[in-house]
């Protein structure tokens, strides 16, 4: 199908984009890569009166390391981050998860921050951001605020972005010395949406497991290695997320993935740690 009618604006700066946002309010949508939004517009699952295209803004096109974070601008594509020099050392979880994001062709255009803004429950990038305890930088005409991943994503396709605000960057903590990272997911075919995605971090005797695709937003299990039975913790975690049956998988199957693949991915993270 074709999208419904809209005005198209291509501002030359973030400030211009923000003044457009405050002018048009809820009638406007930000577009960068459009790999989620264009599909929804085409299917008429979403409509916008005004599209504000930030995809060409140079000031949002950089990845840089600032104060313990890898900061990814809102116009940086998933492919650009995946090919960022040294990514496997800077943040191995991203290097392991990004090849699972969409397809080669959609990663070429889709942005890292767009995926975070879309907040699909099965999406890999919001899962990594939550597992790593990253941050989202939001700007509006009246100022800037930074939210933790946990505060940013409020539920399925729902975020704390306020009217007049846009994401300008996402901040992923860089890898800690000696920490191990692993990622795995189950999808019907390569490039499909994950039925369940799992991100694991092992550091200082603590295991941290993030799960996407079960609850409405990424869920996190923290567990001390010395605390005993991991299987019990995983089983409790699998039930607590209260996943539901849908056309992709049953709730029971999702719990089973969390238990089985969860253990595997945690063990992989542990073996990568020192």
């Amino acid at each position: 199908m074709k999208p419904s009618n809209f005005d198209y604006c291509r501002p030359d700066s973030v400030d211009e984009a923000l003044s457009l946002l405050s002018e048009y309010g809820d009638d406007a949508r930000i577009i960068a890569g459009g790999q989620s939004l264009m599909a929804m517009l085409n299917l008429r699952l979403a409509a916008a009166d005004v599209l504000i295209d930030i995809g060409r803004l140079q000031e949002l096109s950089e990845c840089r390391q600032v104060g313990g974070y890898l900061e990814v601008g809102a116009a940086v594509t998933q492919a650009k981050l995946l090919n960022y020099p040294g990514l496997a050392e800077i943040q191995p979880l991203l290097a392991k998860a990004l090849p699972n994001v969409g397809h080669f062709q959609t990663r070429n255009r889709g942005t890292v921050c767009g995926s975070i803004a879309h907040a699909d429950p099965s999406s890999e990038i919001p899962l990594c951001l939550a597992a790593l305890e990253g941050e989202v930088v939001l700007r509006s005409a009246s100022g800037t605020r930074t939210l933790s991943a946990a505060d940013f994503q409020t539920g399925m396709l729902a975020t704390a972005i306020a009217p007049g605000e846009m994401i300008t960057a996402a901040r992923f903590p860089v890898a800690e010395q000696g920490a191990g990272y692993a990622f795995a997911e189950v999808a019907r075919r390569r490039g499909d949406f994950a039925i369940v995605g799992l991100a694991a971090i092992a550091r200082n005797g603590t295991l941290r497991l993030g799960a996407g695709g079960v609850a409405g937003k990424p869920a996190i299990l923290e567990w001390q290695i010395e605390a005993g039975q991991l299987d019990d913790a995983l089983n409790g975690f699998a039930w607590e997320m209260e996943g539901e049956d849908d056309i992709h998988a049953t709730a029971k199957y999702r719990r089973q993935i969390v238990r089985q693949l969860g253990r595997k991915v945690l063990e992989e993270a542990k073996s990568c740690s020192s």
Binding site: G34, Q35, M38, A39, D53, F104, Q105, T106, N108, R109
Partner: peptide, 12 residues
């Protein structure tokens, strides 16, 4: 870069 032309506007 290989991309979907159905997810790109002509004006983009």
């Amino acid at each position: 870069r290989a991309v979907r032309s159905c997810l790109t506007l002509a004006v983009q």
